[in-house]
Amino acid sequence: MLRNSLQLAVLSLCIGTFADRASAESGINLIVEGVRNEHRNILVLVFDNAAGFETLNYETVVDIAEIKAQSGSVRYTFGQLNEGPYAIFLFHDENGDDDLNTKGGRLLEGIGATGAPNRNDEPDFMGASVMPGNVTVRLHYDQ
């Protein structure tokens, strides 16, 4: 009886270790919600430092992606990002000029960030920080 209990304890420990390792090795599984159309791409910037994120300095990103836009939601996996914390900023580049377009202070394209469930949220790196796993970011449009 003691032997069976010991075997179960070892098996449970092994399964828990494997599950932890599997989730840590999965990277960031990003889900972008609220995409309004299929025009062009969603540009995603992933930062691992406050200075880069808070100034949106693309030269300091740890990873970047360009995802084909689809109405509703899109998914992308950053499989190599397994440490964290990370902060993500993204925008829907509807005209394909690789720039976030505005007019009169209003956004012409959608934006989103981790830690920003509402359009006017502007989280700092700590407020936007996420660890590897499933991460959902909502796009916000002014028009």
Rank of each mutant, 00 (worst) to 15 (best):
Q70S: 08
S71Y: 04
S71Q: 07
G72R: 06
V74L: 00
R75V: 00
R75A: 01
Y76A: 02
T77I: 14
F78T: 04
F78C: 08
G79D: 04
Q80V: 06
E83P: 06
E83A: 13
E83L: 10
G84I: 12
P85R: 09
Y86E: 08
I88N: 14
L90Y: 02
L90H: 04
L90P: 00
L90T: 02
F91G: 09
H92L: 11
D93P: 02
N95P: 04
G96M: 14
D97F: 02
D98K: 02
D99Y: 08
L100M: 12
T102D: 10
G104R: 08
G104C: 11
G104M: 07
L108D: 08
L108V: 07
E109L: 01
G110I: 05
A113P: 05
A113M: 07
T114F: 05
T114H: 10
G115C: 01
G115W: 01
A116N: 05
A116T: 09
P117T: 14
R119Y: 05
R119K: 12
N120Q: 15
D121Y: 13
E122K: 15
P123W: 04
P123F: 05
P123S: 08
P123N: 08
D124I: 12
D124R: 12
M126H: 13
G127M: 05
G127A: 06
S129W: 07
V130R: 04
V130M: 03
M131V: 13
M131H: 12
